[in-house]
Amino acid sequence: MGNRRPPDRDVAPVVQRVRIRYARRGRLRFSSHRDFQRALERGIRRAGLPIAFSAGFSPHPKISYANSAPTGAASEAEYAEIGLTAAWDPEDVRAALDSALPPGLDVVDAVEAHTSDFAQRLEASHWRIELVDVELPVAQAARDAFWAADRIEVQRMAKSGLRTFDAREPVAHLQVDPASPAPCVILHSVVRHVTVTVRPDDVLAALRRVADLEPPVPPRVTRLAQGPLDEATCTVGDPFAPDRRG
């Protein structure tokens, strides 16, 4: 009597995995990854998607997430994969989820998963960094100083304590947009995903370190893309491409 076992409920198997790309826009860029997880799980229920659950006393919905952008950064390229117990047209999944989530958490693309190495395909991120009230030549000089350096050590507070790491090497590309609308300067940066993820904040810390670049207002940051890195052109490709080929 005392030992209750998890119920032998029929756990419906996963028959389809759908990968979604979603955006975190506007004011909802302030949602954390955990905030998004809760929102997505509830959105899936509102949308009536046939989501699969794990077995046991406290079943969890079968959802896995790729590396998420930091709280406060907007993103056009966040990824998750959901396991379904019935096959749906991926476009129907996208539309249903998009309408169930609040504006600002927008599901922009979906494919059925045909491959297994999705996480490895997210090799790099393309970030857009908007600095307000910074002069173009000042930003350009800072970028050049950054680029000329071999190594720029920055620090960040992690769960395990203060970490020191190199913020220069993983940056494959850093460019000041010459057509930036004054009084803004727009930086484009392509960063490889390495063990210690270099975030836009770290790039900014490195710019401060090498060139005293100190924007008066917190910069607005957006991840524009995540995916395979083309080393020759320093561009980030579409991680769904192999799945689209089916």
């Binding site: 004011r27 909802l28 302030f30 509830r42």
Partner: peptide, 18 residues
């Protein structure tokens, strides 16, 4: 908005709930 980048748990101030 510019203040939200400088504080903890900014999501609580932005609204937009379902």
């Amino acid at each position: 908005e510019p203040l939200l980048a400088r504080i903890s748990k900014p999501i609580q101030y932005v609204g937009g709930e379902v």
